[in-house]
Design a protein around this nucleic acid. Structure first.
Length: 496
RNA sequence: GAGGGUGUAGCUCAGUCGGUAGAGCAACGGCCUUUUAAGCCGUGGGUCCAGGGUUCGAGUCCCUGCACCCUCACCA
């Protein structure tokens, strides 16, 4: 510890003073009987009762032979009142020595002060863990309107991300947000379990990566002396399980994509993937609608939320639109069925930049991203995508050149992707071959050939509906978080 | 990758025209037994992101680098 500043030095010296009082500054246990909220929310029944509360010292005011202070635990904040004539002199001396940030335990009686604040009159005070590094001191007041005003809030984003533990200590809304994240995931899981789908785990280290278009992280296995990839998707393994006879499997998993970092992208992120046998993408659309809207209702008590100023309504049914129709509506052009050259001309007229290497499907996708996607604020399913973009999706049952695929959008962002899974091994091999060709042409996100996956399909995979939901983005929107970093405890940062 | 912004005490910030560093909170000492952004008196605290340059003199101007933020590009 070389960055010991004057403030830390003082705290280290306090360890000696505590030792003189025969106090162990790092205790072994504390028998807690109540949480702060138990006391604060049930004053009528708690008044005069003895409680034992533990938490972190948040404020401290000393007035000679007495003092008021607040501590916080996982449920909230509570005031306590220490006075010399109510406790051992030793404990009161400990009270004088403790600092904001110390973990302490108190035993005392519940009462209300002159100003009506519910407070614990301390009989015993115990230091449980000494704070040696000063915390940001956040002061707050409640104004006439009942609004909490914070002063000197710990606000530096870089420090908040790097030292999330401090962020969580001093910014209660951060804790609330992450609890919501967990509740959302639980809601999704509960729903899927209620339908009888099986939660499974598949490899993160993969010899061949696939299931999405992305560049992977590469790692090395020493004993086998071989390259391995961190998965970019779970897809191909989960479908192998459908081949194996499961009717419905899902996985909440971390995927890793070796790409840029911004407000909507973190190199590792959480994806829910779900595969259900004997169903198609129409079924999956209904499932997603129910899955998400049920979870939103359960978590927030309403189908309606606000994201960055936009009201979003999850009440089913959601709007469903064919990609071709949306493009026609917002660009005035019929794009499907056009040649690559024609599409390039149209793109130019729409001021959409197109790379020379783009296929017809890719140009359509580009125009869609620019001209349509930002307009999709309310939950919307966009259906029937160009085949070139979807090497794992089944051809449309009645239309050439497109596949049975949909993506879900809200707040102008994609949040899920699903299709009727391609289960024809001959078609799948051809699609992979096309991908390998694309890779040779310089598309470094094209799929690789996966012979074992083809082999699995050759044994026969039932018709299957598949789905992927980007959990971080879903949580962002549901918690009104402007950046993906706000919904990931430890977002990726360069080393300090 | 490009452009813009930020970086000063533990935290939040100010710092004028280039003249040798400030406030509030926190800390330390004193007084104070119902306070709550407690109060009063007093004290200490700085690698001004890093490295170079210009200058008699740089927190301030110039260059390079680093980190973070924003926008764009890339990216299911």
């Amino acid at each position: 510890m070389e960055d010991v500043n004057a403030l830390m030095k003082v705290r280290l010296e306090k360890l000696d003073k505590l030792s003189e009082l025969d106090v162990n500054p790092f205790a072994y246990k504390f028998d807690r009987t109540h949480f702060a909220a138990d006391v604060v929310n049930n004053f009528e029944s708690m008044q005069g009762k003895q409680v034992a509360i533990a938490g972190r010292l948040y404020t401290k005011r000393l007035q000679g032979k007495a003092g008021f202070a607040h501590l916080t635990d996982s449920t909230g904040k509570i005031q306590f009142y220490a006075r010399l004539d109510q406790m051992d002199e030793k404990d009161f001396n400990v009270y004088k020595l403790i600092d904001i940030g110390d973990i302490i335990g108190i035993v005392g009686e519940v009462f209300k002060t002159r100003t009506e604040e519910i407070t614990v009159l301390v009989k015993k005070l115990e230091l449980l863990a000494k704070n040696l590094r000063p915390l940001p001191v956040v002061k707050e007041i409640v104004d006439e309107a009942g609004e909490v005003k914070r002063f000197d809030e710990f606000a530096d984003k870089e420090m908040r991300y790097r030292q999330r533990y401090v962020d969580l200590i001093v910014n209660p809304e951060v804790r609330e947000l992450f609890i919501k994240r967990t509740r959302i995931v639980q809601g999704l899981r509960d729903y899927l379990n209620s339908k009888g789908y099986l939660e499974v785990e598949t490899p993160i280290l993969q010899p061949i990566y696939g299931g999405a278009a992305a560049r992977p992280f590469v790692t090395h296995h020493n004993a086998l002396d071989m390259e391995l990839y961190l998965r970019i998707a779970d897809e191909l393994y989960l479908k192998r399980l459908i081949v194996g006879g499961f009717d419905g499997v899902y996985e909440f998993g971390k995927d890793f994509r070796n790409e840029g970092i911004d407000r909507f992208h973190n190199p590792e992120f959480t994806m829910l993937e779900l595969y259900i046998a004997y169903h198609d993408y129409v079924f999956m659309m209904e499932l997603v609608e129910e899955l998400i809207s049920t979870t939103v209702k359960k978590t927030f008590g309403s189908y309606k939320i606000t994201y960055q100023g936009n009201d979003i309504d999850f009440t089913p049914p959601w709007s469903r639109k064919r990609m071709a129709d949306l493009l026609k509506e917002h660009t005035g052009h019929e794009l499907f069925g056009k040649s690559r050259d024609e599409l390039q001309t149209i793109a130019k007229s729409l001021h959409v930049e197109v790379d020379k290497g783009f296929s017809a499907g890719k140009i359509i996708d580009e125009i869609f991203s620019e001209k349509v996607e930002p307009l999709l604020i309310q939950p919307t399913f966009v259906t029937d995508y160009p085949i070139e973009l979807s090497p794992l999706a089944k051809k449309h049952r009645s239309e050439a050149g497109i596949v049975e695929r949909f993506e879900g959008f809200m707040a102008g962002k994609e949040f899920c992707n699903a299709f009727s899974e391609l289960n024809d091994p001959i078609d799948q091999r051809q699609r992979f071959e096309q991908q390998v060709e694309n890779k040779k042409q310089g598309d470094d996100e094209a799929h690789e050939m996966d012979d074992d996956y083809i082999r699995a399909l050759e044994y026969g995979m039932p018709p299957t509906a598949g789905l992927g939901i980007g959990i971080d983005r879903l949580v962002m929107i549901l918690t009104d978080a402007p950046s993906i970093r706000d919904v990931i405890f430890f977002p990726h940062m360069r080393p300090e």
